[in-house]
Design a protein around this nucleic acid. Structure first.
Lengths: 151, 151
DNA sequence: ATAATTCAGGACAAAAAAATCTCTTAGGAG
DNA sequence: CTCCTAAGAGATTTTTTTGTCCTGAATTAT
């Protein structure tokens, strides 16, 4: 329901990075291990988030990925527009190309307000908040991590 | 966002069948044409809806697909549990296997009420209602059908 | 009976999504 | 300067989803 694996990995990774000390790059390898996600695949996703999104990358020793300056407030909506594509918010639940108040599918008027709620929620949630939630220890970013918890 | 193509086709087809006179089987070919959907693929989906769902099928001349007796009130939730699988309602937005109030992902408590609304909506919408909406002519089931409208 | 029609069912093919591999490029440390 | 490390980038593979094809079984009209 709702998100592609790619988007899920992206969001998880960004939240994880946001939990780490700003300015200290996080290794792809460590993120992948922590989230229990394929490292090579995650690398592609992070690459993309660097090109068009809130991430910055550094090569070589002490390299890794960081949130760019001021990007802690990046919303999930902004992330998902990158990972799911720009039509993310527009799609009709029945898959019609054209579905608006004027040309509506039979679910449109029931679905529209619910969809609105989803979009509001995604616009309200940002990485910093989510990271803080994780840092309380009450929430988990991945299934039974098996490895170390962060400070 | 939200539904697989398979589910979209299934819902569209069921609504279309529900708009047709009860007891008069509708041809797969006609549904596919009306919805502008690949016929052979739709056939598989309808087959599945016959085995486990609200549809009934008849072979030979005068054959086709009908809603079973009493199945006009089938909800979208019932349909989607078939097409998306029984875990449809359980899935975590971040993809965690385990995500409940006790073991929550960082989005869980924001997402849960919205998800609830989606599930309520899906439980409230049934084929009969949706079919009636379509019959008013104010809603469309497919993109620019090009072929005939039903009576 | 026979032919025509329609769904059933399995094998197969194409496309998309997810995941892997390999090599290159850049940066830091000795 | 050289080596090591980590991301960049492209090709490739695997898996899943979507879509096609063909043959068989059931039903009905002739």
């Amino acid at each position: 329901m709702v998100l592609s694996r790619t988007s899920q990995y992206a969001v998880q990774a960004l939240i994880y990075i946001a939990t780490q000390p700003a300015g200290e790059p996080v290794l792809n390898r460590d993120i992948a291990e922590r989230l229990n996600v394929p490292a090579a695949y995650l690398a592609k996703i992070l690459q993309n988030l660097c090109k068009h999104g809130p991430l910055d990358s550094f090569r070589g020793r002490l390299g890794g990925f960081c949130l760019r300056e001021g990007m802690h407030r990046t919303t999930l909506m902004q992330v998902l527009l990158l990972t799911e594509g720009p039509d993310f918010t527009k799609s009709c639940i029945l898959g019609l190309k054209e579905c608006s108040d004027a040309t509506a599918c039979p679910m449109h008027f029931k679905w529209a307000p619910v969809k609105k709620k989803i979009l509001v929620m995604l616009n309200e949630m940002n990485l910093e908040e989510l990271a803080k939630a994780v840092q309380t220890g009450k929430y988990r970013l991945a299934d039974l991590p098996a490895s170390a918890m962060s400070a």
